[in-house]
Design a protein around this nucleic acid. Structure first.
Lengths: 214, 214
DNA sequence: GCGTAACCTTACGTGCGAGTAGGTATGATG
DNA sequence: CATCATACCTACTCGCACGTAAGGTTACGC
């Protein structure tokens, strides 16, 4: 033991910085290996640090994963709410929301999308994720309610909820597709989603098409 | 060693039967634990058999999982193609397809849905699953092409593919929802999906509604 | 009735990876 | 310069679960 320490090629860094580096590494490794197959050793190595540091700063493997989930989730939410204005017409709101969403996923392909896939499958995290999804469904539902109010119509709560769920689900699916196709264009994907969701298949087939305002 | 064998409460069974029991158990355990957290011991115990039997009949853990995936996937596909007639009008085709799909998921809640979630997340199986998904997208695409031909229209291949993808994705999402809500009714879910997919949000909001033929 | 093949078991070997013990450098503060 | 906290490391322990060796027991054909 007591080997001469490796030449101090890398400087010491304050905790906050290292934590971010670790989270970056963790997201990378979790996304390419999956939660269980990812080893703490690999994460530590990828972060350019040794394992006990990870335990010291971010705690156990589960806690680390939760931290990843939390950071990425927050970023996504912020990206979306930053894009969508509150008192715009519903189609414009939806369009901006989708645009922000797919833009974000496109910029964080391997990071976010696969992390999402992970959380959905692994038992302990399903809860944490579904909370986030609930929030998105809430947002979409609210939007739909607003649109309905403007029309003077009403729809049963359940139907609305499920519709919002379908919308969110379809978006997640296309996000997966986007994450797997590096050449695909986020904006184009958003436009396609918009057409599917807003105009509807039947009217799409009749030639009706929604498009972004010029 | 050489303990007196446990009283032969359970008879010896032919291979084919035991294999099915093992697959049943495997689906149950994989779905409630996730691939990695599931142990071969637990699967064996759940099947009422000892571990080496599982290895003898179905092979390694990965192979076992693939076998589950294969059986469930085949069943689903059969359920769907059995339901949908080839030369019906497109909306009727879609409706029957959705009905069959949600009916199947409703009947195999914990089994199929969670298994699907697993395969999507775990590295080695993503391929096997995506093959199946491709087939479904193919089917849906073909249906859309047929519908378009009837209208004398044309759409770029890419757009069509992505639309089919969105449709399949939205369905999978609602299937997840269905799997998590034991009280929900599969047919009702199918109807909601049909409304979302066929009529489109915009026209739904204007009061237009698709419904099953009486 | 007796061999042979299929069915089924208990009881391991083994490797990998989560988590930890205990110690070393380095910078800030008096 | 002492001293204290923070950053960081090497080198372990330990349990879990995959996969297997080696052997028992029932059925069935001849």
């Amino acid at each position: 033991m007591a080997r001469v320490t490796t030449s101090p090629t890398f400087k010491r860094l304050p905790r906050a910085v290292r934590e971010q580096q670790m989270l970056d590494a963790a997201v990378r490794v979790f996304s390419r290996r999956g939660f269980h197959a990812a080893s703490m050793d690999e994460i530590a190595e990828d972060a350019g640090i040794s394992k006990p540091m990870v335990y010291a700063y971010l705690g156990t493997k589960e806690e680390l994963f939760i931290a990843c989930l939390h950071r990425e989730g927050t970023r996504l939410m912020e990206a979306i709410v930053a894009g969508v204005g509150a008192d715009l017409p519903p189609d414009e709101q939806l369009w901006r929301g989708l645009r922000a969403f797919f833009g974000f996923v496109g910029a964080h392909r391997d990071g976010w999308a696969v992390l999402y896939r992970q959380a959905r499958a692994q038992q302990p995290f399903a809860g944490a994720l579904s909370t986030m999804r609930e929030r998105m469904v809430e947002v979409v539902s609210a939007m739909l309610v607003q649109a309905l109010a403007a029309e003077g119509r009403e729809v049963r709560d359940m139907d609305l909820q499920v519709m919002a769920y379908a919308l969110v689900g379809a978006s997640e699916s296309l996000a997966d597709w986007l994450a797997d196709h590096p050449d695909a264009d986020p904006d184009k994907t958003a436009t396609r989603m918009m057409n599917f969701a807003w105009v509807g298949a039947a009217h799409l087939l009749h030639g009706e098409t929604w498009h972004a305002a010029p």
